[in-house]
Computed example of a mutant assay.
Amino acid sequence: MPELETRLAREREGLLDAIEQPPLERIGARAAGIRHRRRARRAGAALAVVAVAGFAVLRPWSTDQEPPGVADPSPSPGVVYTDAGITINGLTGDGYLDPRGWITDVEFADPDHGYALVQCRAGEDPCPPSLARSSDGGTTWALATMPPAQGPGLDLTAFADGRVVVGGYVTSDGGRTWQATSRPDAPATSVATGQLLRLGGGAVEVWSSVYGNRGELVQQPPGMTVDWVAGAPSATGAWWVGGTRDGRPAVAVTRDGGSSWQVHPLDATGRTAQVSVLGEHVYATVLGADRAISAVFLSTDSGQTFTRTTSGPVATPDGLAGEAVPLLDGRLLVTGTDGKWYVSADDGRTFHQADGTLPQVGPIFRTPAGYIVRDLFGSGWAAFSADGSTWRKLQVN
């Protein structure tokens, strides 16, 4: 049947010619890009070694030398992680700043200008701390000059006027130059606009962008043992603190810069209390052993009166990792000590896990410019959010 075989062969060739071939060149280029990004994400420790070697030459220990940030000239869209209305926008492109160590503190002076302090952990080979800065909301980062004297336990504080305090030094030009802070002789009688309250040695301290730590506030919350201070004032300028009074959980607020305090004892069993504010809604979360949520209280009149929303200890999550975040849609967001995300639609009575593609997570902290979440993916990444719902993974680690 030679004629039949010849005819079938011709028809097969014609059929193959009629089928439109895929754009193999474009697909190959895309696949190569995907493989490159996967290798960049999976390399982990190997990338850290390479990055350390590269940045060792560029690390600016003098004020006249400053390396550029790491940026992709045409960044590809990042991976988006989401569930239950919570969205984390991942890295864009393949470039990120990778100084030696781990992020130990992150602050944003405003939604654009952020700073990350990177240090080696205890038990690791010692390394000098690094300070990274961003002026585009955390998309690109550059190393800044560290202050000349550094000791253990460094932290950083960013102020709305653009100044940053690290240790006992302050910079007003994004970490290019530093000046030693000097505490004024006069006691801190109040916290002015632009200044911050912080916890230090069991007392409420005043921090200034000019002087750094100004010392303990003269008028402390009466009768309270304070072990938590809000990271930022409310929209009306009120400052909240939490702790205990007469062995019971309590919160307190000052609306006149610390000259006077209103103390609210909370009728619940616990070791401390924290506060989260959005508009006139003020949530007070009572924490017990291992940071288990013992009770949640809600005020709808800016903290004049509180009503308990829970009938007993909250079963889920096992413990609160950082601070609760009131969302614009009326829900309450928390991260648990189990590394998971949880939301409550009933003012903290019950919490449900937000899973989907959301990564493992650490604690959330309030800052003057928004919220910071730490230890994303269990590997030291951080993210910033202005509202608690939409987050940007910071391209530094």
Rank of each mutant, 00 (worst) to 15 (best):
N89Y: 09
N89A: 07
L91N: 01
L91R: 03
G95R: 05
L97D: 02
D98M: 13
P99Q: 14
P99I: 13
G101Y: 02
T104E: 12
D105P: 08
D105Y: 07
E107H: 04
D110C: 00
G114M: 11
A116D: 07
L117W: 08
L117S: 05
E124P: 04
D125G: 12
C127N: 09
S130C: 12
R133L: 07
D136H: 03
D136F: 07
W141I: 10
A142N: 03
L143G: 07
M146V: 13
M146H: 08
P148I: 03
G151F: 06
P152R: 14
G153F: 11
G153H: 12
T157N: 06
D161T: 07
R163H: 11
V164Y: 03
V166F: 12
V166E: 08
G167W: 04
G168P: 05
Y169A: 10
S172H: 13
D173G: 12
T177E: 12
A180I: 03
T181S: 03
T181D: 04
T181E: 07
R183M: 08
R183K: 14
P184N: 10
P187I: 11
T189M: 09
T189E: 13
V191R: 04
T193N: 15
Q195H: 15
Q195L: 09
R198T: 08
G202R: 01
A203R: 09
A203C: 01
W207T: 01
S208Y: 06
S209M: 07
V210M: 04
Y211R: 05
G212C: 02
G212D: 06
V218G: 09
P221D: 02
G223V: 11
M224Q: 00
